[in-house]
Every structure is written in C-alpha cells, then in structure tokens.
Design a protein around this nucleic acid. Structure first.
Ligand SMILES: [Mn+2]
Ligand SMILES: [Mn+2]
Ligand SMILES: [Zn+2]
Ligand SMILES: [Zn+2]
Lengths: 147, 147
DNA sequence: CTCTTTTTGCAAATGATTTGCAAGAAGAAT
DNA sequence: ATTCTTCTTGCAAATCATTTGCAAAAAGAG
C-alpha cells in the first residue's frame, strides 16, 4: 500500500462522501495496485493479513459498486471480478482478454471497440462490454522449438 | 415440446453420438423453445413437472457444453445462463441486450459486431462476446403521457 | 433378452456471497 | 478533548446456485 495509492483511495471516498475507514482504504489500495480484475477472495488475500473480515470485503465492494467507484468485469466463471471504474467511459468499459491456455486475464485499455451495427430499432444502448478469449502472447511463443 | 423440436433434439444428440435419454431430450426441447438464455433453474421449471431431477439438469448442461451443443451467455449476475450454440459462429456469438428497466434479455442475432481495433500485438483472438445494456423499446415508450 | 456401460435420482456437500446483530469506529456537535 | 449519533465492522450463521457420491435404472450393442 503506497502513499500514492492511499491518497488516491482517500480522494475516491471523499468524492462520494463516504467515510474513510480502514477496510475501504485497504480494499481500494489493493484495487489500485491490481492490473486485472480481482475476485472478492483475491482482494481479501491481498489485504494486510486478517485485518479485514471477508464479509466486510464483499459488503464494501457492493458499496463501491453502488457509487460507481468499482464495477464488475464479466469473466468466464460465475465468480465475480471487480476492478476500479476509473479506466472506463460511462458507455463502454475496456475489453478483457482471457487466455485459454494460462487462464490469465488482461485489461485492454488501449483497444478500440467499434459500436455494434445493425441493431434493431428502439434499443437505447447505455453500456457496452466486450470479452475476448484466445491465446496470449506468452503462451503462443511457448513450446515452439520442441513440439 | 413440439414434434419438430423433438426431432431437432434427437438430431443434435446423434451428431455428437450421445444417448437419447429423457432428460436430454426434455432439456434440449426447452432450449429450442426459448428465445433468450435460460438459467439451470428456469430450464428445470419448464420441464414437464418433476420428471427430471435438478442435479441431472445441471449435469446434462455440462455435457452439452462440452459437446458445444449449448454455451454460456454472460449476463449481469453470477447465475449461469445457457442457450443453444447453433446461432453462433465459432469465433463470435451474437450480442445480448439486457434492459435496465425490465431486466429482460434479448438475443440480437442479426446485429453485426465489428472486430476490436488496435489490439496489442501477439494476442490470438479465438472468441469474442458482446453484452449490451440499456433500455428496451418496450420500456422506452412506456410512461410517456403521464409522467 | 442379456449384458455392459452410461445415466439418473436422491441426499448431502460445496463454495461464493449475504445477512443479523451487537460491539466498535467516524465524524458532527459541544 | 468529550459526547453523541449514525454508520461500519466482525463474527457466526444463512443462502443459493451448482456439484458430487452412490446405488438403482435405462440405453443400446450383441
Ligand atoms: Mn479491466
Ligand atoms: Mn443468445
Ligand atoms: Zn496465456
Ligand atoms: Zn425493458
């Protein structure tokens, strides 16, 4: 938990007029340090050991979700993944790529997702989400010389 | 369960050389009749009452999943939704639209999803999935005259 | 019809997420 | 700084979708 993350965390809570409590700051710092969406359990594990209860982690995530400070990333399994919302525009979140080989998920911040074409009339799209699946650069180059 | 669906269901099982059992045919017929992705529970409820156990429903869905007869639709909550795979190309499934108002999800079979631009080098994309969220035509026109 | 291999039903287990409740902080007011 | 009110937390127990173990039942080959 760096000083920089801590400040950013406090700022995020202030902006939403939320109390700055230990669990909230810990959780936000974990998310600020993460480079891909995390599950409730992963967040719990990365917090200074046993300083925060798991129920509090989930409750806090729900709170942050309601305040649009974090949001869900929809990955393959039924386990929820959370990430900070500050990389997302209101109408569309960055795509996520999940490797079928190593299972790792990466955020593709710089990718550009064109709007869906030929939508039937009358639908108002407020949010768009894209999920990619395939083989990551790491797994592609592996096992070249000896297969 | 129409005669037409039953035949299609049998055909799907044959193609994957799977035994034609009562639960499998029932489940496939439910999916053939559905116009949006269904949860395990929803499928269970739509089957001729109590003729199939819920555990069997889930086990069967897993089987059909392994044989690419059905696949997951990734919707908002942590509950899995299943639908027949026969509307999808291998590299990308049709988008789903979920209404924030009424909560209903529709399959957008005819929509065209352009490829993601500006992907970092080295990623091999095998599958793409798009989820839209917003207000459906029904909910948009409602509450016009009297609000 | 018989035999072998799958598949099923039922009950119990799992595992992620929620919830009730009393004790413990935060922050406003004094 | 102290008091007071309101919001949060920890802990334990509850939920709920999904899985799993196992013995009984069904499918399909011969
Ligand atoms: Mn992300
Ligand atoms: Mn669909
Ligand atoms: Zn990989
Ligand atoms: Zn609607």
């Amino acid at each position: 938990m760096t000083e920089e993350h801590l400040q950013k965390a406090e700022q995020l809570l202030e902006q939403s007029r939320l109390r700055k409590t230990r669990p909230r700051l810990e959780i936000l710092c974990v998310l600020l340090a993460a480079d891909s969406p995390l599950t409730g359990e992963q967040i719990f594990d990365r917090i200074t050991p046993a300083s925060v209860d798991k129920a509090t982690v989930y409750r806090t995530l729900l709170l942050l979700l309601r305040h649009d400070i974090v949001h869900h990333a929809y990955l393959r399994n039924r386990i929820r993944h959370f990430e900070l919302a500050h990389h997302c525009k209101p109408d569309h979140c960055h795509p996520h790529f999940t490797c079928r080989d190593c299972g790792r998920t990466v955020c593709l911040y710089q990718a550009v997702v064109p709007a869906v074409q030929n939508l039937p009339a009358g639908y108002l799209v407020l949010h768009r989400q894209t999920r990619l699946e395939g083989i990551c650069p790491n797994c592609r180059t592996e096992g070249f010389g000896d297969e």
